[in-house]
Amino acid sequence: MGKSNSKLKPEVVEELTRKTYFTEKEVQQWYKGFIKDCPSGQLDAAGFQKIYKQFFPFGDPTKFATFVFNVFDENKDGRIEFSEFIQALSVTSRGTLDEKLRWAFKLYDLDNDGYITRNEMLDIVDAIYQMVGNTVELPEEENTPEKRVDRIFAMMDKNADGKLTLQEFQEGSKADPSIVQALSLYDGLV
């Protein structure tokens, strides 16, 4: 993909415009910024974590950033290329609610087996709590990752089998306004 070129080839721009919710001009602008920050044309896990640390200076986002990195890194080569970056950004910032929920499901399904187990969710929720640090005051019933996961599973795990399917996750998330709101945070920002 033209590693350190400051412009993408027209056919690449066209393809990314088809695969995302961005215009050709927006794709070019994002590429310019991506190459400025990642001259090699790729972003590794350490660089990704560094970006998260800028956004969450009062907590430790390392663990959460690693989980997000793994979802962005579609081809699992340990690096995020621009096409992976822009497609994930498109879903998280401008995707439909169902697209965002499928993306979030992939984030929580750490072993990619098609289910979110209690332990997988606990890993992610714990990482989120570490990331936000003491900057967020949580209600008593959610002031630990374990309590939050218990509440989520009580609401979403309809067949009580200890794991969530994509359908259970989507339906449960849509029924909880706070989850829908959290997924909409990026709307309109890009």
Rank of each mutant, 00 (worst) to 15 (best):
M131K: 05
E137Y: 03
S6D: 13
N75H: 07
N75S: 11
V136A: 06
Y186I: 01
Q42C: 05
V71D: 06
S184Q: 05
A127G: 07
E14A: 14
M155Q: 00
V27G: 15
F58P: 02
G78Q: 12
R151M: 06
E137G: 09
F82I: 14
K158W: 10
N119K: 10
G95H: 15
Q170R: 09
E84Q: 10
A154Q: 14
I35D: 09
V68D: 14
M155T: 08
G78M: 12
D77L: 13
T23F: 03
E26T: 14
W30V: 01
Q170P: 07
P139V: 11
I86M: 01
K53F: 10
E168Q: 04
Y129W: 01
F105E: 15
T20R: 00
V12I: 08
L110Q: 02
L110E: 09
I80S: 12
T66K: 08
D60R: 09
D113L: 06
A127R: 08
I116K: 11
I116N: 03
F69V: 12
D157R: 03
L107H: 02
K32G: 02
G33D: 07
F153I: 04
D73P: 05
N75F: 10
K147L: 09
R18F: 12
D77G: 09
V149M: 09
L43A: 01
E81A: 13
P10V: 14
S173V: 01
G95T: 03
N70R: 12
T144C: 03
F85N: 03
K158G: 01
D157G: 11
E171M: 01
Q54I: 11
L101D: 15
E137P: 04
K76Q: 01
S173T: 07
L164I: 14
E84K: 15
K63A: 02
E142K: 10
N119W: 04
A46N: 02
L185F: 11
E146P: 04
N5S: 15
K100T: 14
G133W: 13
N143K: 06
F22T: 02
E81M: 14
D111F: 15
S40N: 12
Y186L: 03
R18L: 12
G47H: 06
I152L: 06
A45E: 06
P57Q: 01
E26M: 15
K63L: 13
A104C: 02
P139E: 13
F82L: 14
K76F: 13
D77T: 15
Y115N: 10
T165G: 10
L8R: 03
N119R: 12
L122A: 14
D113N: 09
D37K: 02
D77C: 13
N159G: 06
M156L: 13
I51N: 08
F67T: 04
T144L: 09
D111I: 15
I152W: 00
D113K: 02
A175D: 01
N143D: 09
E84C: 10
D123V: 05
T92F: 07
T117A: 07
F48M: 10
F85K: 13
K9P: 04
V13D: 12
F153Y: 13
V190E: 02
Q167E: 09
Y21H: 12
G2H: 04
F22G: 11
P10F: 15
N134R: 02
D60P: 03
V149D: 00
Q29F: 13
Q181S: 05
R148F: 11
C38H: 10
V68I: 08
F67P: 09
L107R: 01
L138K: 02
R102A: 15
K163N: 10
L164S: 06
A65R: 06
K53Q: 06
F67H: 01
K158D: 01
Y21M: 00
F72R: 11
F85P: 02
P39F: 10
R18G: 14
Q181V: 04
E137A: 04
D150Q: 04
A46T: 09
N134L: 13
L122P: 10
A46I: 12
T20E: 12
G2P: 02
F48T: 11
S6H: 01
Q28G: 13
G162S: 01
E81V: 05
D98L: 07
K106A: 14
L110S: 08
A154H: 06
Y108C: 05
N159W: 01
K32V: 07
I35L: 03
G41K: 07
K158H: 06
K25Y: 11
S173D: 01
E15F: 10
T17R: 08
K7L: 06
A175T: 09
L101E: 01
P61V: 10
L107P: 02
Y108L: 02
D37F: 09
V132E: 05
P39Q: 00
L164H: 04
F22H: 15
W103R: 13
P39G: 12
A45F: 06
V132I: 04
K19H: 15
L101T: 12
E99R: 09
I80R: 13
E120A: 01
I51D: 03
V190G: 06
L189W: 13
D113A: 12
E26Y: 15
E84G: 09
N112P: 02
D98C: 00
N134Y: 04
G162N: 01
D109I: 09
D150R: 09
E171Y: 14
S40M: 02
P39L: 11
D126F: 08
T20F: 13
K158Y: 08
T17E: 13
G33K: 06
F169Y: 02
S4K: 05
S184R: 06
V149G: 06
T20P: 14
D60H: 09
Q28D: 13
T92R: 00
F22K: 14
A127Y: 07
K36I: 14
S184G: 12
L183S: 08
K174R: 14
L107T: 08
L110M: 10
K19D: 08
G47P: 01
E11P: 15
A175K: 04
L89P: 11
L110H: 13
N112F: 00
F64L: 08
N5I: 15
L43W: 14
V125L: 09
P57F: 02
S4G: 08
V27L: 07
D60F: 06
E15D: 08
G172M: 07
Y115A: 14
L189Q: 12
Y52S: 08
T20Y: 02
V13H: 12
L43S: 14
P139D: 09
I152G: 05
N5G: 15
K7Y: 03
M155P: 14
V12S: 10
V91E: 13
T23W: 12
Q49D: 03
R148S: 02
I116M: 02
F82E: 15
G78I: 10
K100I: 08
Y186G: 03
R79G: 08
L183E: 06
Q49S: 03
I124V: 14
I51V: 12
I86T: 13
C38Y: 11
E171G: 08
I116T: 06
T135L: 15
T23Y: 05
L97T: 04
Q54A: 13
V125A: 10
G162H: 03
F85W: 00
F34R: 03
K147H: 01
R18E: 02
F153C: 04
F169H: 10
D77V: 06
Q130R: 11
G41D: 03
R94C: 09
K100G: 12
I86N: 12
Q170V: 05
F82P: 02
E26P: 00
P39Y: 02
Y108E: 12
E81H: 08
A154I: 00
T62V: 09
L122R: 08
A46K: 03
M155L: 06
S184D: 13
K19R: 12
K147W: 07
E171L: 07
F34H: 06
S4N: 11
K100W: 11
E137F: 11
T96S: 06
